[in-house]
Amino acid sequence: MSAPLAALGLFGDAIDVIFHAREGRAGGAQVGGLSDFGAMAWTHLKVVLASVGLASLIALPLGLVLGHLRRGGLLAVTVSNVGRAVPSLALIAVFIAFLGVGFGNVTLALALLAIPPILTNTYVGVTQVDRDVIDAAKGQGLTGAQIVREIELPLALPLIFGGLRTSVVNVIATATIAPVAGVVTLGDPIFSQAVYGDAGKLAAAIVVALMAIVAEVGLGAAQRAVTPRPLRGTPGITRRARFLPTLRKGAATS
């Protein structure tokens, strides 16, 4: 009986830490409160935007070009597989060990994590565009660059947004371990538990989780917004029927 009650108490305490500063456990400086958490959240957000931005600068053009040429499919798939297999903690650790700590290095490490989903989705999105459409565009005299800009990019947008969404959510999660590299994100209360205590640790977890869910939902809405209405299906389920045209016989027709 007591465990759930205590738990509730701790959650309540955690929420309190977010809004009201209190004396650190080690004594001395005030910790917690909106300004403290706000600063950490802002740093968190900055590192996320910087790394996803950097990843997009690399992965988007690369995916568009490879997809347009319909080459390097193996590369795109391999990058995404290897990317998943490398543990984020190990990646950050390698960066600290070899390059040292700091905002730039953390951004670089997180960008590496963010590249695979964006690259793979952009590539797949572009290659999925109906070849007949491309053919018709060529027939009307569009140049390669125009085809990418006018046709392939717009049609690939839903998948590109899907990749961005995955990357952003991943990076928000992983940026939590940035404090080990000297960047004070929302992970700080977790790593400086001696200062923040259990309530502060839990509070950080809550804020990070909320931030991830908001990003997921917001970018999900954006993804739906850029998806032409007829292509919207069950969220999260690939519309296989579009790629494997099997005749599903309606019961009422013959």
Binding site: T174, T176, A205, I206, V208, E216
Partner: peptide, 23 residues
């Protein structure tokens, strides 16, 4: 089911560990 498991998938692992610790 997709929405529910999607939320679980979205919560950062580190955060989830600490959210579960009190429970």
């Amino acid at each position: 089911i997709v929405q529910l498991t999607g939320i679980l998938y979205t919560i950062p692992s580190l955060a989830l560990f600490f959210l579960l610790l009190p429970l």
